[in-house]
Design a protein around this nucleic acid. Sequence first.
DNA 1: CATATTATTGCAACGCTATTGCAATATCGA
DNA 2: TCGATATTGCAATAGCGTTGCAATAATATG
Lengths: 129, 129
Amino acid sequence: MEKQRRNTKTKKLVMDVFRHEAGALCHADLVQRLAGKVDRVTVYRILQRFFDEGVVHKISAENGKTYYALCHDCSAGQHADDHAHFYCMSCKTVSCIEAVGQFPQLPQGYIAAEASWFISGYCPSCRAV
Amino acid sequence: MEKQRRNTKTKKLVMDVFRHEAGALCHADLVQRLAGKVDRVTVYRILQRFFDEGVVHKISAENGKTYYALCHDCSAGQHADDHAHFYCMSCKTVSCIEAVGQFPQLPQGYIAAEASWFISGYCPSCRAV
DNA sequence: CATATTATTGCAACGCTATTGCAATATCGA
DNA sequence: TCGATATTGCAATAGCGTTGCAATAATATG
């Protein structure tokens, strides 16, 4: 049977960080913001849990790190994991963006389970500088 | 000035592995196939060198690993790094695929430097099983 | 061909991201 | 309140990748 879920102070702390940040955060970001309050390992486990529960997106960035972001527009239960993620090479933040248009079709015979589009470049704020 | 380039036995060994494989390979794949012949670290350096020279693609997979694949259809000097990479969840291989159609437009104000589209699913061979 | 220059290699050590085992603790239903 | 068990923190470990350095090998030059 399903494993139960408990609402703990620690989870609330992590969730608070997400709520106060606009973009996506990696494990190190969270640990830094929760320094002295939550253990490194616990942060890993909570992120995994949140992901399993469908509360956050998981984003594998080009730099090898994994970022997490709160799900906002995901229709109930269904992850919109094919939306795009943007990494700004200037301010070094990762964010979810709304791209316009359809994605290309896969060649015949391929079955897609998940897809991710990852773009590196400059965000509107940094571009001006 | 530019650093010189030397053609060594070791580089040829690595290149041979690429030539005898269809899909993309990660560092561990190469080390395994070259066990006893080439050092781990050297493989890292050669891969980096090949990438700098534009000989191979670099693919960041969802599993956090980095894959490399020979460039085939890249027009001279210009990387076609916006093509798609496919990870087959069954045979666990990464390959470059030719997707049909345009990619979505970024929102106003964003400037893209690089983009990658990564899809996980089942390839034609495994799908049949 | 002999020699000097320096790119390249292998080895050891290190750094960073992430995971696992386990005892102690905290949550939540009864 | 109390018991079952999900959760946490700590220590240890695993995996991927990098750096420093001395030894080696590829290339240009005489």
